[in-house]
Computed example of a mutant assay.
Amino acid sequence: MSVALRAHHLLCVLTYVGRGYSEAFVANYDALARRIIAGEPIRLVAGPDDICAPLLAPTASAPAHCRQPSVVERDAAARHEVAALLGRALAVGDTFTLDADTLSRLRDGFRANEIRTACVDCQWSALCTRVADTGYRDVRIVTAPTAESPAT
């Protein structure tokens, strides 16, 4: 099994502190965070992913923004910047484990504003900035398994 993530959610997992759109969203995200920490591979997808799932459910209270063109643009920006930071290509379908070194490099780049283009105009951006500025205190993904390179 793998955790399906769209590219801009690679940034979101860096600062996730247990807040979200609804209780169901947070419960789902917490479960995904535990899977990532346990070493389950991440599979890069286009469009709605495992994090989006509660927003797409028939009982979701607000219309999902997951398919909006602006979100697709966020994915493209995130994929490009994360690939440049890590020095390797990232394409839809790639799978990889978010190991401790990669997590640290991504958080350093996020905090230095090197991979934040996808965050422009995001409603969560201020929270994510505060989380990064406090050294990622209280994040739910605090450690990761051993290194494994993305499959290409």
Rank of each mutant, 00 (worst) to 15 (best):
E73A: 11
A53N: 02
A144H: 02
T134E: 15
S70Q: 09
G87P: 01
T15S: 13
L90R: 09
C122V: 03
T102P: 03
T143D: 14
A91P: 05
D138H: 15
C12L: 04
R140P: 05
P150R: 07
E23L: 00
C128H: 04
L127H: 09
A60N: 12
S149P: 06
Q123E: 13
V92D: 12
L32Q: 05
L11C: 11
V120C: 04
T102A: 14
C52M: 06
A33C: 12
S104L: 14
R107N: 10
L11F: 07
E81I: 08
L5Y: 05
V92F: 04
T15E: 12
R105Q: 12
I141G: 03
F110C: 01
A144T: 10
C128Y: 02
D30S: 03
S149G: 09
P150L: 07
Y16R: 08
V131G: 08
D30E: 10
M1G: 13
R111M: 10
A78Y: 02
V45A: 03
T59V: 13
G135H: 15
C66E: 15
A57I: 09
T152I: 15
D101N: 03
E73D: 06
C66L: 09
V72M: 05
A77K: 05
D99P: 03
A46S: 14
G47Y: 11
E114V: 04
E23Q: 04
A57P: 11
C12P: 03
A78T: 08
L85S: 03
R137S: 14
L56M: 15
R6S: 09
R140Y: 07
L106W: 10
A89C: 12
D94E: 09
D94L: 06
I36D: 00
A77T: 04
C66R: 03
S70W: 05
R34T: 02
E23C: 00
I141H: 01
D94T: 11
R74D: 06
R74F: 09
H80T: 13
D133W: 10
V82P: 01
T15K: 02
P54T: 02
A38E: 03
A4G: 03
F110I: 05
E81W: 10
A62L: 13
E23Y: 00
Y136A: 10
R105A: 04
A64E: 11
Y21M: 07
V13K: 03
Q68T: 01
R137M: 14
R6W: 04
S125R: 13
V17R: 08
A38L: 01
L85V: 04
L56V: 14
A62K: 12
A100L: 09
A31I: 00
A151S: 14
G18H: 09
D49W: 12
G87K: 08
V131T: 11
D50C: 13
R130F: 01
R79Y: 03
T134R: 15
D121C: 07
N113I: 12
L44F: 05
A89L: 10
S104T: 15
S22A: 01
M1A: 08
N113T: 15
A24P: 08
P63S: 12
A77W: 02
S2V: 02
A46D: 15
L11S: 11
G87W: 02
R105M: 07
R67F: 05
L11V: 13
V120P: 02
C128G: 08
T146P: 01
A118F: 00
V82N: 00
I36S: 00
S125H: 14
R19Q: 08
